[in-house]
Design a protein around this nucleic acid. Structure first.
Lengths: 245, 245
DNA sequence: GCCGTTATTATTCAAGTGTATAATAGATGC
DNA sequence: GCATCTATTATACACTTGAATAATAACGGC
């Protein structure tokens, strides 16, 4: 059983090591400090109560930071708390478990990877070009994103909850692309059966995903804008149509 | 300090709890068994000394099994040992550390994903078709493979050793494809500068990788052979050439 | 059959894990 | 100001982790 610590306002009647201790600020969990001087009177670190929902969001963001920098193994409750600027216990105040927090963090990743691409506007050709550009430029295309995405994918077989999150995201993304292609082909006066659009969507989704990964993992092997240029030319070949006006 | 255990042939002179104990087989690490009956004489589980290199290979394979089934976090030394049918201590007999074993396992994954595709033979068109088929059929295209691949990709930012292994594998793969495309275009009488082949290789590598992932993660969303059919048609469009004779 | 080598097992250990709980203090309403 | 609420901190805990070490037994040479 470890020795009790005396808080400044503690009413404990244990002797506080006799001497007149100055209150000691405990930054983080300085367990060494306590071992060195177990009778010391200490103060807690100050904090502020975050507004509704904000702390929760910070914890999710900190979780993703840790996963991308240290891997899933390195994303411990304590490390995440440090990154979020709070202490570990707070995680369980906002989430039922660490696993639940990680699952929510994954939802955020999928959303960030797909939401940008779904906001394209304008005529079909512009939207198609923007779709490609967005997916192959920052912030969608960067090493943090692919790192998170891969960590997530690697868990799909392990955790059925994550598998469901992935499937939903994938289908929504591909269907959005399929609708876009349908519009594009129609605007160009090309016959576009659902089946044909589906095949185009599968191919172009694969192409863009593949180039996204190549670029994220080895961006230095490509010239500036090279991947986008290759993607544009490839899509034009696949569809047999120019994508610029 | 925990009570000593008495091995069958131990020359220890501690009393063996007085009673005449039958030797007890210790399957695995049954620590409960010991706590229940700390004076018992036990036997070790039998084993055989594996031939040169074999055990090492089994451990790597067990490592990959565990990563694909339980994720990187779930691939503990103990779990891996169970899968390999040995005890945990043996890992450190064959590898300097668990991390080193994992890195070797990653090399094995890269090799298994790329070696098949590099063994294609025949005329360029056949090789190109086989390249596509191999990458989009089992055993390269299955959920275990993509799970392992993703687990490692998620670590390339964390571990520079893995990053280097990845880069080597990627470049070797893409260069093999680039050479193949160069041969193919030459055989069809098409001009094929290095630069053009490079762009084709990047695009087709991306396409095949992307379709590979789509198929591995959601194979049930596609009809039998559909992805290969889409890949073939797409490559034909990209190159502007038929791939069958 | 015995003996030496060493692959393999059993055990221990310190550090780290997620979680549970109690104490504290920032905010808010009056 | 003061009481109340609850977000936040500090601590405790049981368990798992990778690693180190000592004991054992399978195997090969003779």
């Amino acid at each position: 059983m470890r020795r009790r610590i005396f808080w400044r306002n503690s009413r404990s009647n244990e002797p506080s090591a006799g001497a007149a201790h100055e209150p000691i600020r405990l930054e983080g969990n300085d367990l060494d400090r306590r071992r060195r001087d177990p009778g010391a009177v200490v103060t807690r670190r100050s904090f502020h109560r975050a507004p509704e929902g904000e702390r929760r969001q910070e914890l999710i963001e900190a979780t993703l930071d840790c996963i991308s920098e240290f891997g899933l193994k390195g994303a411990t409750v304590r490390q995440i708390a440090v990154r979020a600027g709070v202490t570990a216990g707070l995680v369980r105040h906002y989430f039922d478990s660490k696993d639940q927090m990680v699952a929510e963090a994954y939802r955020a990743v999928i959303a960030s990877l797909t939401e940008k691409a779904k906001t394209v506007e304008g005529d079909p050709a512009t939207r198609l070009r923007d779709f490609i550009c967005i997916n192959l430029s920052e912030p969608v295309a960067d090493s943090r994103s692919v790192s998170l995405w891969a960590a997530f994918i690697s868990q799909v077989r392990v955790d059925p909850v994550l598998a469901e999150i992935h499937r939903e995201g994938y289908l929504a993304f591909r269907n959005a692309l399929q609708d876009l292609l349908s519009d594009f082909l129609a605007a160009k006066g090309r016959p576009a059966s659902t089946e044909l659009c589906r095949r185009y969507a599968i191919a172009i989704n694969g192409l863009v995903d593949g180039l996204w990964i190549e670029g994220c993992l080895a961006g230095d092997l490509f010239r500036e804008g090279e991947l986008i240029s290759i993607a544009m030319a490839s899509v034009e070949s696949l569809l047999g149509l120019p994508v610029d006006e």
